[in-house]
Design a protein around this nucleic acid. Structure first.
Length: 1139
RNA sequence: GGGCCUGUAGCUCAGUCGGUUAGAGCAUCCCUCUGAUAAGGGGAAGGUCACUAGUUCGAGUCUAGUCAGGCCCA
């Protein structure tokens, strides 16, 4: 048995597909799970990926980390759950389904039918879950995946016939149920596979959470002015708006007059960028501390703040100045006082309880109020207040007991009581409003104004602000003192501080993640969890139409027990709209039938509950205890601090007051190679599938892992090519080298004592320094990589491995080539094979979690071909343990020195312009310190001599011919000693006689210098003697090492150089002729003069090097492969013939 | 407006406790090696360490400010 032949030019991508097939056929993933069942756990909870579109390359980054660390801990001997998750519910799915169906508004959805619409949403989720599953498998992400075809089948059925009864195979046996119920049970123990947040279990578990919030008094219904998307017809929460939600926009800034009621001819000057809100004006606010001016301008009297006078067009005359507080209580005529809405007592909000005891109409209420927040950076210092159209306006109205007018309906149309505006859309009224103001004679100016304005994060529609009622989870007060100083009672009252205590128990990588999460918690408002939409968690809140009482239902059992009507209609369906809405319960206060509020839940509830719902919190507490908390979670940090991380933390704090995860590994943002975000329209986007099939996923994965995670990743094909060239190809070449020669030599590894978990076997016992060096290196990096990965540091591991790979290919293999190539089968050759084999197999296992495909290909050949007892897959082997005995630090240092000397020697040759092929007499090496000199033993010298192609190496102790000296003060010692005088000491030292000082220092004597007329003594330790290469020689030097080469080329050396040249030509010609490495040949040559002489004198050498059996002068026969050459202008014809 | 991060070669980035001549990879040019070659090696060129001021014997490194970019929050 020996290795299979390895192609030098392998198609890595085709190979990846072969390996995918191999894994599938051999059930490699399942076999790996079996191997680790019952071992200590390592719990990873995968954050649900939105199953709404194909995966992007940015998902590939995160999923590579997840797979890497899953595989690492698996190989370390841990049991894992391997459950992927799909995020299924929420507006983002609705928006895409609306697009698919060509819908424009909520009315289209209602006309289509809620039941069908919800099923279309489920269908879309199942289809994209199938796509993402396939893509993840392609990436090599080993998880307990569903069969993508089965997901697609369910997608078809959920639309066609959800009530059809089907049977599917689960891990515990067949499961029979309706399509709707099977879909609702995906990810449950009996079905296995990924979890889906639309599952019944997920939804019911959230009910349990909400009920607990309700019981603690943290859940409330509140009216507030919220950002609102008129297209989606729903409120947008703070979570959704902060980052993605703002866009730079140009709006008209309109300046207008509010004529003062008791001051004829006088007006307040007011400015706004949202003209539609003027319809709902109630008051005007001024800053009490700002200075206001009364001025005459174009024949009228205006008031505005002194810092905003630049708003005026044309000359003005200031008549008086006054503080803002002087304006308080002035009354004015509003711009739309003729509207019915402005004349209704209390105003016109939907929520009548807000104005229950307010009798004034907006019209009556128009007055100047004081507000500290009024500024002068924009506007006129007089702020128009419309409590139904702005969050701060609303707060002021509550404070000042002002009426409120809410002009817009859900979709942004003016409601009744707005006369000519009623039924018009907010986006179409701008010009009409200007015309109205102009007609009334109160419009002063309109000019464009650029500012950042919120838009809907999903559909990019400009948001408006609407007075609505929504449901919130209270975050509790923010106290004006540090967290440590809070009393127990204060903390009890404030959920945010309880979450902070949990956050402190978690390790955040990178560390600033901790501060980010804390910052969010300090600043977070109450969490708005309701959305007036269709597809999502049905909020389990029932309200009484009679008495206004609310009830919160904690789970499906409570619902069934309390159902007073509609249960038959609901039974058999998932707890989604519309069927859940049929269920009515009895009001405990007034016995009326209560209905569910129509709102659905915020999708971060769905994602945040998974550390309970997927870990069987309700059904199997022991299982939950086994897997909770997660040891590790990971996501891209932009966004997740306020989303997934936050919701996980909040929900675990409420339910268990404990951390849901122990370590959080965050990574930055993936950008295109041009440093910009990827955008299809910019042409810089790369689709995941394209990337995978053009780069190969091993390359992608290595690229991802070798990125510093806290820095943005610039992803692209150039970077991928570089990665392939720097990492994958050298790795393959080293492997190809071993296999090529092992096949020629029929070499195979020892089989006694074979352990499938550690298939490279025991450390080879070899005397050769080069072998012992590479064995030390591999074991050194095994230890270091283990430590790095234990700390979630993939980057450091990749750096270590790349350095090692360079050592292996560009030093070990290159230096060892002859040992493999030579014809004797001696102990040295055996050592070389044993060493390279051990190193490669060990490296393959080290790399397996990073690049699972190429390592599998190598393992199959290197291990499985020769060991019948081997595990089927490299991913079934264990993580390598560092053999500390092999890590000979001294040897590592010596080899490093030898490599530096060799490198300098090549530099010296280069500067003399002498080819390496030309042998030279000797190299001279000067080492400045004794410890380095002691490292230069015979073995190291032999390596350097060979590498530099010199006959001998001489260590010189009198370096004076090679170098000149420079004397420097040791700043670290002398700086502190002399302080301000130091520059003079330095100058004196530099001015002194260098040669004498070097002499003194070398002999260990102190130096006396005269500084400012005083004599100071410096000890030898305080002086640094540096050497630099003497000018004009073929010398190269770096810190402490100087290397020179003897450039005299004698006749013998020249002949040898020519012989090597001839050998190289024959070798190239062999290759051109297509001969095999091991083929013996006859070589014919035609040459005369010096070349003929060289061929004769060096015949044995030439024959040995080129596997020439006979070397024959004269015309080659026809069948020979013939080429003409010129060496230094001398012609030579060579003919090769395979025997 | 506040907070955090970043600014080093054409590009992507290292740079430890403040210390002696600021490095790597890629790209460019020259040279070279080669039966693992989609490689490899040596060299050249490329720097106002964003700017300004300060602390210090000494600043890429510490401090303050300015400018630019990014992120988070108002």
């Amino acid at each position: 048995m020996t290795f299979r032949e390895v192609p030098a030019n392998v198609d890595f991508i085709a190979q990846e597909y072969e390996i995918l097939r191999f894994w599938k056929e051999t059930h490699a993933f399942e076999a790996m799970r079996e191997l680790h069942r019952g071992q200590p756990t390592w719990s990873f909870i995968d954050g649900p990926i939105t199953a709404n579109n194909p995966m992007g390359v940015h998902h590939g980054w995160g999923r590579t980390y997840k797979d890497l660390f899953n595989r690492f801990w698996t190989m370390r001997g841990r049991e894992l759950r391997y459950q992927n998750g799909f995020d299924c519910q929420g507006l983002w799915v609705e928006v895409e389904v609306e697009k698919e169906l060509g819908f424009k508004s909520k009315r289209d959805i209602e006309a289509y039918g809620l039941d069908r619409f919800v099923r279309k949403c489920k269908e879309r989720v199942l289809r994209y879950a199938a796509v993402q599953t396939e893509q993840s498998i392609r990436l090599g992400y080993w998880m307990d995946w569903n069969d993508p075809d089965q997901l697609r089948w369910l997608a078809d059925l959920i639309v066609e016939d959800p009530s059809r009864v089907i049977t599917v195979q689960g891990p515990l046996g067949p499961v029979t149920d309706t399509v709707e119920q099977i879909v609702a049970r995906l990810g449950m123990p009996e079905l296995g596979g990924s979890y889906f947040t639309f599952s019944d279990e997920n939804n019911h578990m959230i009910w349990t959470f909400l009920k607990k919030c309700w019981q603690k008094g943290w859940l409330y219904r509140g009216a507030d002015v919220m950002p609102w998307c008129p297209r989606c017809a729903t409120g947008i929460s703070q979570h959704e708006i902060v980052t993605d939600g703002y866009v730079e926009m140009t709006h008209p800034g309109v300046t207008l007059r509010f004529p003062l009621r008791n001051r004829p001819g006088e007006s307040l000057l007011v400015w706004t960028t949202t003209p539609w809100t003027l319809t709902s004006n109630v008051a005007a606010a001024v800053g009490p501390a700002l200075t206001y001016v009364k001025l005459r301008h174009n024949g009228e009297i205006l008031y505005l703040s002194k810092g905003t006078l630049h708003m005026l067009k044309g000359p003005y005359e200031i008549l008086a100045e006054m503080p803002g507080s002087a304006l308080e209580g002035w009354t004015y005529e509003g711009p739309f006082d003729e509207l019915e809405a402005a004349r209704m007592p209390g105003g016109y909000p939907e929520q009548e309880e807000l104005i229950r005891d307010i009798k004034e109409s907006a019209c009556d209420a128009h007055r100047v109020i004081l507000w500290d927040e009024v500024g002068e950076t924009e506007g006129t210092g007089v702020v128009h207040i419309a409590p139904g159209c702005g969050a701060e306006d609303f707060q002021l109205a509550k404070q000042h007991r002002l009426p409120m007018i809410a002009p817009l309906d859900e979709e942004g149309y003016f409601t009744a009581h707005f006369d000519w505006l009623s039924g018009k859309h907010v986006t179409e009224v701008r010009e009409m409003i200007f015309e109205h103001l102009r007609h009334k004679g109160i419009l002063y100016d309109v000019s464009s104004y650029v500012h950042r304005y919120p838009v809907c994060w999903r559909c990019k529609t400009e948001l408006v602000f609407r007075l609505v009622d929504e449901w919130f989870i209270s975050m509790g007060p923010v106290y004006d003192k540090p967290r440590e100083a809070l009393s127990k009672e204060e903390k009890e009252r404030s959920l945010r501080y309880q979450i902070m205590d949990i956050v402190s128990q978690i390790r955040w990588i990178p560390e600033f993640g901790y501060a980010r999460e804390m910052d969010w918690l300090y600043n977070m408002h109450d969490w708005m969890i309701s959305k007036k939409r269709y597809w999502g968690l049905a909020l389990p809140f029932w309200s009484c139409p009679q008495c206004g009482h609310y009830e919160v239902i904690g789970d499906e059992f409570e619902l069934e027990a309390r159902a007073a009507a509609g249960w038959e209609e609901f039974a058999g369906h998932t707890p989604h709209r519309p069927y859940i809405d049929a269920v009515k319960i009895r009001c405990p206060r007034c016995q009326e039938l209560m209905s569910r509020i129509p709102d659905v839940g915020n999708p971060w509830l769905d994602a945040g509950i998974v550390s309970f719902s997927t870990l069987r919190y309700r059904s199997d507490r022991e299982y939950w205890r086994k897997w909770y908390p997660a040891h590790w979670i990971s996501e891209s940090f932009p966004g997740q601090f306020r989303n997934w991380f936050y919701s996980l933390l909040a929900m675990a704090t409420v339910l268990e007051n404990s951390p849901p995860f122990l370590q959080n590994f965050g990574y930055a943002t993936l950008l295109a190679e041009d440093g910009r975000p990827m955008h299809k329209s910019w042409g810089n986007a790369i689709e995941f599938n394209d990337a995978a099939d053009k780069m190969g996923v091993d390359v992608m994965r290595w690229l991802y892992c070798s990125q510093k995670p806290d820095q943005n990743l610039l992803f692209g094909y150039r970077r991928a090519d570089e990665t392939r060239r720097r990492f994958l190809i050298p790795l393959w070449n080293a492997y190809n080298f071993l296999v090529t020669y092992a096949r020629l030599d029929q070499w195979e590894p020892a089989t006694d004592g074979f352990d499938p978990a550690q298939p490279e076997g025991a450390l080879p016992q070899t005397e050769t320094l080069l072998d012992r060096w590479i064995l030390a290196r591999i074991n050194q990096i095994v230890g270091r990589c283990t430590e790095a990965l234990e700390n979630s540091d993939a980057y450091t591991a990749t750096v270590l491995i790349e350095e090692f790979l360079d050592d292996l290919t560009n030093w070990y293999v290159r230096r060892s080539r002859r040992r493999f190539w030579k014809s004797e089968h001696d102990a040295d050759k055996k050592d070389a094979y044993a060493t390279l084999y051990y190193v490669l197999v060990r490296l393959v296992r080290l790399l397996a979690p990073f690049t699972p495909f190429v390592t599998e290909a190598m393992y199959q050949n290197l291990v499985r071909e020769v060991h019948p007892q081997a595990y089927n897959s490299v991913h079934h082997t264990s993580w390598p343990l560092a053999d500390v005995a092999a890590v000979d630090e001294h040897l590592l240092k010596r080899m490093e020195l030898a490599r530096r000397v060799a490198s300098l020697g090549l530099g010296a040759r280069g500067s003399a312009n002498i080819k390496v092929r030309q042998p030279l007499q000797k190299a001279l090496v000067y080492l400045s310190d004794a410890s380095m000199a002691s490292m230069m033993d015979d073995a190291m010298r032999a390596i350097i001599v060979d590498e530099l192609n010199v006959k001998s190496l001489e260590i010189v102790s009198d370096e004076s011919t090679l170098v000149r000296y420079q004397v420097l003060p040791d700043n670290k010692l002398l700086g502190p000693r002399f302080g301000a005088v130091f520059p003079k000491v330095r100058a004196a030292l530099m001015a002194a006689n260098t040669k004498e000082i070097v002499q003194q220092v070398r002999n260990g004597f102190p130096i006396s210098l005269v500084v400012d007329g005083e004599t100071v003594q410096l000890s030898p330790e305080e002086i640094i003697v540096q050497t630099q290469p003497a000018a004009g020689l073929s010398v190269a030097a770096e810190k402490g090492i100087t290397v020179a080469v003897d450039t005299v080329i004698t006749a013998e050396l020249r002949a040898e150089g020519l012989a090597r040249e001839i050998v190289r030509r024959i070798q190239t010609q062999r290759k051109d002729a297509g001969f095999n490495i091991e083929d013996r040949i006859t070589t014919y040559f035609i040459a005369d003069g010096e070349l003929a002489k060289v061929v004769h004198e060096w015949a044995d050498y030439i024959k040995a090097e080129t596997l020439t059996v006979s070397l024959i002068p004269g015309q080659p026969p026809h069948e020979a492969f013939v080429q003409q050459h010129a060496i230094e202008g001398m012609p030579i014809t060579l003919g090769l013939h395979r025997r």
